[in-house]
């Protein structure tokens, strides 16, 4: 594992910690898209089917369990926790996420590394992750004002994607047979979605001002 991959995993982990912190500390999930969070649950469950068949390392196994567990905990809080669910901005979270699930699955049936149950679900999870942030980004755009922790959450998620791209560039030059075009292309698409957010994030950071997205 190279430093970029590790940095990517850590920023991914930090983003989840920031989100859990926001929900637990403020007992509020305002500004957070339940649809994006539900998509992440599907992404992790579909991708980590290999938990039972392939052992990579203790690190990989632990991280997989953490990602599955934390995404389930977030969705549970937003749906079931009495105080938290009241703060969910349902009227701002109207993205039709079923289309994303359906589209990703059809794409996985067409484009995959191997036509096996696990590989189809792996490709599906890669495609779905690429678009899973969209309901959240649309929600931020709609509400305009972004609270600090929600802004940090999306920032760290974007940083995770950026580090993964550096990781692939590094692997491409250091590993003789590294060719993961499904993951790399989807990763590029996914990271591109964050470009706009990053632009406004850095402007607000430079001006030491509250993060605001244009309507």
């Amino acid at each position: 594992m190279n430093i970029f991959r590790f940095a990517g995993d850590m920023t991914h982990l930090i983003s989840i910690v920031v989100l859990l912190l926001k929900i637990y500390a403020t007992k509020s999930c305002s500004g957070i898209s339940l649809k994006t969070q539900e998509l992440y649950v599907i992404v992790f469950l579909a991708r980590y089917l290999d938990l039972f068949t392939d052992f990579i390392s203790v690190y990989n196994t632990v991280m997989k369990l953490v990602f599955i567990g934390s995404s389930l905990a977030i969705v549970w809080c937003m749906r079931m926790h009495r105080a938290v669910k009241r703060t969910y901005d349902k009227e701002l979270d109207t993205f039709r996420h079923y289309f994303l699930v359906l589209g990703s699955f059809v794409l996985a049936l067409l484009l995959h590394e191997k036509f096996t149950f696990q590989e189809i679900f792996w490709a599906f999870s890669i495609y779905l992750e690429a678009v899973a942030i969209l309901p959240q980004l649309v929600m931020l755009q709609r509400s305009g004002n972004v609270d600090n922790l929600t802004g940090q959450y999306v920032f760290f998620l974007g940083a995770y994607r950026a580090f993964y791209i550096l990781n692939w560039i590094y692997r491409f030059f250091t590993e003789p047979h590294f060719s993961r075009w499904i993951a790399c292309l989807s990763g590029l698409v996914q990271t591109a979605f964050y470009a706009d957010f990053f632009y406004y994030y850095f402007i607000s950071w430079k001006n030491n001002a509250k993060l605001q997205l244009p309507a």
């Binding site: 995993d9 991914h12 290999d50 392939d54 990989n60 993951a183």
Partner: peptide, 10 residues
């Protein structure tokens, strides 16, 4: 032949 490599990323 294509090598079978398990998915080693998260």
């Amino acid at each position: 032949a294509v090598e079978e490599v398990p998915h080693d990323e998260l």
